[in-house]
Design a binder for these strands. Sequence first.
DNA 1: CATGAATGAGTATTCATTCAT
DNA 2: TATGAATGAATACTCATTCAT
Lengths: 192, 192, 192, 192
Amino acid sequence: MPRSREQNAQIREATKTNILQKSVDFFARNGVEGTKIGDLAKGIGISQGAIYVYFDSKEELYQDVVNFSQEKIITEEFLQIDAMDVPAVRKLRYISDYILKHMNEDRMYASYLLLALEHEMKKPSDHASNPMYSLMHNIIKEGQKDGAFAKGDVDKTTDYFWSVVYIYSVKKCNNSKCVLLNSSELERVVRG
Amino acid sequence: MPRSREQNAQIREATKTNILQKSVDFFARNGVEGTKIGDLAKGIGISQGAIYVYFDSKEELYQDVVNFSQEKIITEEFLQIDAMDVPAVRKLRYISDYILKHMNEDRMYASYLLLALEHEMKKPSDHASNPMYSLMHNIIKEGQKDGAFAKGDVDKTTDYFWSVVYIYSVKKCNNSKCVLLNSSELERVVRG
Amino acid sequence: MPRSREQNAQIREATKTNILQKSVDFFARNGVEGTKIGDLAKGIGISQGAIYVYFDSKEELYQDVVNFSQEKIITEEFLQIDAMDVPAVRKLRYISDYILKHMNEDRMYASYLLLALEHEMKKPSDHASNPMYSLMHNIIKEGQKDGAFAKGDVDKTTDYFWSVVYIYSVKKCNNSKCVLLNSSELERVVRG
Amino acid sequence: MPRSREQNAQIREATKTNILQKSVDFFARNGVEGTKIGDLAKGIGISQGAIYVYFDSKEELYQDVVNFSQEKIITEEFLQIDAMDVPAVRKLRYISDYILKHMNEDRMYASYLLLALEHEMKKPSDHASNPMYSLMHNIIKEGQKDGAFAKGDVDKTTDYFWSVVYIYSVKKCNNSKCVLLNSSELERVVRG
DNA sequence: CATGAATGAGTATTCATTCAT
DNA sequence: TATGAATGAATACTCATTCAT
């Protein structure tokens, strides 16, 4: 009895997600050029050909892995911080704790962060469309207004914050035992 | 009639330095894997073979480029900051100004910084032997003692400082028009 | 639907053997340095890449081709000559006939011989571990004892015999129409 | 005061001979493909360019080295053996002693022999024009006539003799301490 | 002539991608 | 779909040869 169309779609989706999930580590640690499809397939436990069933090229896989990582970062819980009815300092602390807790507890979280942020580190401009940036942007603007944060260009400070998060995600990916900042230390870049 | 021994030594030295100098940009922007010897040779304006006259392999060239970059960073002036007879805050300001000024004015400086720091970002431990780290270590220890800087693990704070410098060198390398931090902003990670 | 594990093993074995088999001629005629992987692949009728699926380097391929050739020479039949219950002269004749017959009838045999013996021609010492040498050694010792062969250092005479075989394998490889020695002529080096 | 034309010619000749002489070892041990111009120049103690002042290409140098080697072998003394007024057995002994003595005493002689004979090992036919072959040919024909040598095709036996000489020159070149045949052993191939 | 730095065609090797099964 | 053997274009590296000095 052949599988139903729906079952097929489910299996397809599961395999694709498996590939994405397992690719995260490789791309986070080695970058696009440093990630070899052969190693990747071996690491995932599938054939090289199977990867090309789901993705047209290494480049496309990488892009999908980046998007996948961003989705892992930009969760409901994460987005709702913005709407919380507390002062900016509390929101900042919430977000700092949230990130650092996950980086410490979830072996993958640093990789997600790294991939989600890498592009923003190197390309300027278009941070506006990135929820991670607009969330932080709002918090910082609010905190500056109520005098809790240091004055300064909000976009620049936002970028500063995520840059620090990014560099510690790099450290964590390459050395899972590395000691991360604590929230106060991370917040210095915003609070001044 | 052949060139004199001295002339040859000069030519060799000049060519080698030229290769190192021009390779800095490539490796800083693209990493080892992303840098193709063919592109590099074209960029430098020499033959691929010439590179192998001076370096045994791409990997060795990369290492030499890293060392070359470190030497460009760790100058006499840089090292003498430690011996200055001023409080830690002033030393910190001096070093922040020094770095940011060079990053803004010297097209290559961000690349030197990137290459000089990259290894330290990913491997833990052995910062002790790196003059950039020991200089900052001394300043921070001093500043914490006289109450000017935030308390905290000195090594960790040192690493924090250079990590921020590193990430902004990445930004600068990839987008020469990007706006850097100013000294006060950079110093936040130390002063708290 | 993928091939079965067994099918794959068969294909791999077949391809590997095909490469080894077809490489014999190239290495026998041109040596390691004179054999170009590109020519070899073209001669075999596969891509260059395929060679590297089965062998890590040209040098390793060469070694494997040498071992393959030795196995083609040191057959069951060849080894059993030693155990035959006949005088040394008969054994010698048997082995001479055996070798010369195969060289005349099998286009590849001279190449196998060449590759199997080449290393022994240039390096001294360790002939002891080579079955071709120990077989001949036994026969010669026996023949000297029963007075059929000329007196003399057994190892030296053994080496003499195989050296003559080697040099005629070189001739045959380079000119398949060349006239080989007959058994009596070959045996002169032993019988005196 | 510039050198006279004659002096120049002398110096030229001396340098050329020096290159030829020192190249013998390299080509004998490593063959044409295995001999790298860079190593050769270093071994000779001159620049790579200098080689190309005297020889148009590596291939031409090799040919000249072969001719040079043949001249070292085919000396007056060597040629006069033919005209000696003694039976073939004596001539054969003379020539065997001559060759083996020189191989043992002159570090270069084995290399000369190797290079002088190598081409004849692989290409058939044209042995007629080679004095080494015609000398041996005459001796063997004579020896067969007076019953001292084994009957058989004279050309074939001549080739047999020189083949054995060749293979021992290979051994000697690759291992200067190797034990050579003595004259009686060498002569077996002719005397039967 | 002699030098040795430089060239570039040639060669070994890698790796993303394809395809028969 | 999944497999993994095979491909071939890309890449790193070598080496005979050239040429400015």
